[in-house]
Design a binder for these strands. Structure first.
Lengths: 209, 209
DNA sequence: GCCGATAGTGTCAGTAAGTGACACTTGGCG
DNA sequence: CGCCAAGTGTCACTTACTGACACTATCGGC
């Protein structure tokens, strides 16, 4: 079960190359013309592959756009599991998330794709959908960390949903509003605010609106 | 601008009836056969209207399914604005959300539609999309309540995204996991946990996995 | 009560996503 | 070489959704 580092055979490697090529082509086209304006025919065409074949690699147009986002979630999961066991949940999760985002932050391809996703509401929502599909995994890890049963206690689920869904969404909204701070910094900030609790008291009336 | 309670004319009323009829028909069909298995032709047909006309009332199939969800968000917005100004943000938002959900909780139609949405990932995602579109409104209200500028301070946005996106998602996940508690109760609980902060310390190792 | 502007609807033709069936090509292997 | 199966292309099809244009029914003024 562990030994699988063998060179995977010529066929397998070709398949992998096709997959990568499709992702690259899709990203390039999405960045150039936008998500909606790009057709499957174009993506497939620019890799010299039939549209039918595209759908043998990706279940939908969204799928190819979110391939990297999926990898990112997986990476956060792994980093979360690797944190020292005595850390409070959100602290561990924050550290994991920030670590992962730091890794991607230098990747130009990642950034332009990030923009493509942020700009398109349907894509943004689809990313949340992907995240939702993995709540159970995060909740399970969080529950173990807290020493509670994630089936009996709603808190691990809440932590998972906030981390996988609210935090990235907030970051996107915040960026879209014109604040160009680094993703990792915004993420760290969001987690810290969540740690402290969100029930801010009423303040003095603010001038203007 | 205030006087608009006039009987809106025969034409307008007919339009409204068609809209309601389409929503009802769609809901019935969705509940009976599921979202994907229901076609626009069926919905339009059962109201004796052309498919083209359907798209003059709703921009998409999702749109008709989420018509009620939109109303719900609007209701929460209004209830939030109506809360006493000296309440802490999350407390006010929690009260508003619980009030609204209580209202809908007795509506059988709402419940079956809720199930239709939860069961379909694409619909769930679309609902998140709708919620995301209204972050700015909630953030603005929250900012005013906190006495801070929602453009300069990320906290109102965080509150908005958690309330509109993470909380309902958690509730759905929690229900899907088999816990049949009332929506309003789960929502209240989620808000209370958020108020207290989520950074739970590491606990003793839990038996089982 | 007639009549013209206009809102609402139907018809038709078209694009694009996504799927199933089947035939073909090509890598892996005796 | 020649077989098997994975991978791919082709074709035909369904369905969501859109634009153009013609038709019908309401509403306003006369």
């Amino acid at each position: 079960m562990l030994a699988a580092m063998e060179k995977p055979g010529l066929r397998e490697r070709k398949k992998q190359r096709t997959r990568e090529a499709l992702i690259d082509a899709a990203q390039a086209l999405f960045c150039a013309h936008g998500f909606d304006a790009t057709t499957i025919d174009q993506i497939a065409g620019s890799v010299e592959v039939s549209p039918r074949t595209f759908f043998r690699y990706f279940t939908s147009k969204e799928d190819v756009a979110l391939a990297l986002a999926d990898d990112q979630i997986t990476a956060v999961l792994e980093a979360f599991a690797a944190q020292p066991a005595d850390l409070p949940v959100l602290t561990a999760l924050r550290t994991a998330a920030v670590e992962v985002i730091r890794t991607y932050e230098t990747d130009a391809r990642f950034h332009s794709l990030q923009d493509v996703i942020s700009v398109n509401p349907a894509l943004t929502a689809a990313r949340v959908e992907r995240a939702t599909a993995r709540f159970a995994e995060v909740a399970s890890l969080a529950g173990a960390r807290m020493g509670v049963d994630p089936v009996a206690d709603p808190r691990p689920y809440l932590v998972a949903s906030v981390a996988l869904c609210a935090v990235p969404t907030t970051v996107v909204a915040w960026r879209a509003a014109g604040h160009q701070a680094a993703e990792s910094e915004l993420t760290r900030q969001a987690f810290d605010l969540l740690s402290a609790g969100l029930d801010y008291p009423a303040g003095p009336a603010v001038a203007g609106r």
